[in-house]
Design a binder for these strands. Structure first.
Lengths: 239, 239
DNA sequence: ATTTTCAGTGCACGTCCGTACACTCACTAG
DNA sequence: CTAGTGAGTGTACGGACGTGCACTGAAAAT
């Protein structure tokens, strides 16, 4: 079970279409080795990010080596530096990358909020479906949120604050008439985000867990959010 | 900046008091190298745990090496195996170790609950003081709760469930008369534990953070728990 | 047509790692 | 008093790691 090295023997296969005069309409083969230099570089970079995200499934970022990532991405270790200065820097970039599904989620939740009458139910459903379709991103965010790399922790924290403040704005819209201070709104939004993040981790740890199935977890999240909403109905910011 | 190896030259100094006939009243020197073999072993074992806990402050368990722990504990790497089979096993033991302050906390909170009139305030205060006096343990639990080592994650999860179910019992006592199902009580307790754990991490990350000072964080936690309590007042389990 | 750029290669290095093995020698049990 | 135990030692190994350096060759710039 020695080295699984490959690529060293497989010589770079250049694009064979040399005669065609139409540069716009390429055959594109099957999306293999094509594009400008910049495009190729971007693809490798993306590959490094993807591969790292896949490795996060079972381990923490701090225990993943540069060599391992390069190996899985099909490049030589030193070529890694053409894209990132270190694994830590890659980790910070990965935060942006992983926030994309979450941002898309909040947009979709807002849409559901308009259509559906039950805001909480639709929000939880959207959460569930997004976690199911982007597990790696959510796992990365929840695992590294309090993880061992300070720079990554900081980056996630910043993004999550942004997320919370967006939710705060939504809550403000729903509580006009009640005398909520923005500080209290933010506090309530933070509690909701916490509940949702804990739900995310529960969803990701299902499978190997006892009886908890997905529906049970989402039901609980729904009840927790409903409990908070109920509390907000009874709250007075300045008593 | 080569090897900082030491201990190899410092020969084991045996206890010098050989003449004294009283085996009970030892001079004890200054608590250095004394005790039975079993005691010495236990002390080394504890040292390994302590040293690891200290290293967790800035990194994750998965990135801490056996050699590093052994070095800091003042023993040779191979002697590590006299105490633990691997770093993973040490991690699982560390969970028990770290739960002790938390268990003591809940006991103290219950006492405060009896004396003080405001349960929430006293609970949050107890939380704050325990985090301040046992930062390493709390950091370990929160950092490795969703960390990279499955066995440790599992162990923490189990302990936290126990903690939650203890809180559930307390809540049941406070809500007699209201028709709460035990499932809903547990859901509410879980939300409270989540809020408290998030508070713990916020407390531990203060210092290097912006303006958030300790009091601000505890105030927020207090308001979050109060919000939940308010929600519970308005809740009906089977509507 | 020529030069420049630069993503990726290949090799080499020094360091740290986990762990196997044979050992010592203070304690303990008999 | 003697024999056995076992916590800790010292050496040694094979392998993985991060990274420096000189390189190649296709694409881009001139």
């Amino acid at each position: 079970m020695g080295s699984v090295t490959f690529g060293s023997g497989a010589v770079h296969r250049r694009t064979l279409a040399v005669v065609s005069e139409t540069p716009a309409a390429r055959p594109r083969s099957h999306g293999e080795r094509s594009g400008s230099r910049a495009e190729r570089k971007e693809r490798t970079r993306q590959n490094l990010l993807d591969v790292t995200l896949a490795l996060i499934a079972s381990r923490s970022l701090a225990s993943i080596s540069l060599r391992e990532v390069a190996r899985d991405a099909g490049i030589v270790p030193t070529a890694f530096y053409r894209h990132f200065e270190s694994m830590d820097e890659l980790g910070v970039e990965l935060v942006d990358e992983s926030m994309r599904p979450l941002r898309q989620m909040i947009r979709e939740a807002r849409r559901g909020q308009a259509a559906h009458s039950d805001i909480i139910k639709s929000t939880v459903d959207v959460l569930g479906s997004h976690v199911r379709s982007h597990p790696a991103q959510f796992r990365f965010l929840t695992r590294e949120r309090y993880g061992g790399i300070a720079a990554v922790r900081r980056a996630i924290d910043t993004e999550l604050r942004l997320f919370t403040s967006e939710l705060t704005v939504d809550l403000a819209r729903l509580t006009t008439g009640f005398d909520w201070t923005s500080e209290d709104l933010e506090m309530a939004a933070d509690l909701m985000v916490q509940a949702m993040l804990a739900t995310v981790m529960n969803l990701l740890e299902v499978d190997q867990r006892r009886v908890d199935d997905e529906r049970t977890i989402l039901d609980r999240a729904e009840r927790q959010l409903r409990l908070i909403a109920l509390g907000m109905g009874a709250w007075r910011s300045k008593p």
